[in-house]
């Protein structure tokens, strides 16, 4: 498959898997207002995933001369074909884990999509433009929570530090290029670290140093969690092949 298809699928899978994880909060949030807030982010992510899947489906349909749908791509591909960033598939731990992951994720997503917006592929550029408005809000929301929890109570500070230990090793993957990537991600790292540091300073958090970084998601080497996510996500499509819903 062409680099552009692979890149599109990576972004689609990434948004879908984080959307799937965040959707676990729906009906279980810490307070009604925030249940609604995290679910808005979930809906944005699933919307972004759909745009990318639809575009990938269009490209694949054209190149392979058959009809592929967004759902076929989301529901009928297997673990090794998924290209999402590893950080998305990690199980939800607590609110601190969720807001910190969202903060890391969205801060990188913004930088990436600003590059994507400049891409000569007009479809990808258009999806990026639309998504950036959403992402900016996600950063605002999640960074405020990171500060609140970092500078809140002793317990919240402990919890966000624990989340930091879990999540940090999965942030390096953002900047490790996969062979098909059409955007050069390495150079984005410095800017990303700066934006994280600014919020961490306000939250009283320290950036870990010299941590070994996990990677592999972009090329289909995942954690054990992804298989379970897919078996739930894809269950109906697998149990009733070919049915319309």
């Amino acid at each position: 498959m062409s680099p552009i298809i692979n890149q599109t699928l990576q972004l689609a899978d990434t948004c879908l898997i984080l959307g799937q994880r965040n959707s676990e909060w729906c009906a279980h949030g810490p307070i009604l207002e925030q249940d609604i807030a995290i679910t808005n982010i979930t809906l944005d992510l699933i919307g972004q995933a759909r745009h990318f899947y639809q575009y990938a489906a269009e490209l694949i349909s054209k190149s392979e001369n058959k009809t592929i749908t967004e759902d076929a791509l989301a529901y009928l591909r297997t673990e090794r074909a998924f290209k999402n960033w590893l950080i998305c598939e990690l199980p939800n731990e607590d609110w601190a884990h969720t807001v910190l992951r969202q903060f890391f994720f969205s801060s990188f997503q913004l930088l990436l999509f600003e590059e994507l917006e400049k891409n000569s592929d007009s479809q990808l550029s258009a999806i990026a433009t639309k998504s950036i408005k959403e992402i900016k809000y996600h950063i605002k929301w999640s960074s405020e929570w990171v500060i609140r929890l970092g500078d809140g109570t002793e317990e919240s500070n402990n919890r966000i530090n624990k989340a930091l230990q879990i999540l940090w090793p999965y942030t390096g993957e953002f900047f490790m290029p996969a062979d098909y990537e059409i955007i050069s991600v390495g150079p984005l790292q410095e800017k990303w670290l700066l934006s994280i540091k600014e919020i961490f300073d306000e939250a009283g958090l320290t950036m870990p140093e010299n941590i070994f970084m996990q990677s592999g998601g972009k090329s289909g080497i995942h954690t054990e969690h992804l298989g379970f996510i897919l078996s739930e996500l894809q269950y109906l499509q697998r149990a009733y092949p070919g049915a319309e819903w």
């Binding site: 207002e33 925030q34 609604i36 807030a37 808005n40 929301w141 405020e144 609140r148």
Partner: peptide, 20 residues
Amino acid sequence: SLHAADAQMAIENARDVYTR
């Protein structure tokens, strides 16, 4: 109306609750 810890959060909650 709604609940929020501070004014900034109240504005954001209002955005999520009342302008969906």
